[in-house]
Amino acid sequence: MVFNRLIKDRQTRDAIMNASVLGLNLVTSTFVGLIIGWFLDKWLGTKPWLLLVFLVLGIIAGFKNVFMEVKKISEADKAEHEGHGQDD
C-alpha cells in the first residue's frame, strides 16, 4: 500500500493512530451520557436525578472504552516484544 511507505516506521504511525483514537472516546461517551440524561429528565420530569445518573454512567463508559483500548495496545506491544525475542 502507498500508505505503508509514507512513514516507514510502523510504531510512529501506530502511535499517531492510537493517540487520535484514545482521547476522544473518553470525551464523547461522557457527552452522550449527559445528553441522554438531559432528555430523559425533560421527558420524565425528574430533574436533576437522571442527568446525574447518566452522566456517571457516561464517564464509566468512557473509562471502560479507554481501558479496553489500552489493554489491546499493551497486548499488541507484548506480542511484538515476544516476536522480537524469538528473532534474536
Partner: peptide, 16 residues
C-alpha cells in the same frame, strides 16, 4: 454503559 458507548461511536468518528 454499552448503549452509551455504542452511541458515542458515531459522535467520536465525526468529531475526530
Amino acid at each position: 454503559i454499552e448503549i452509551i458507548s455504542h452511541l458515542a461511536r458515531p459522535l467520536s468518528l465525526t468529531l475526530r
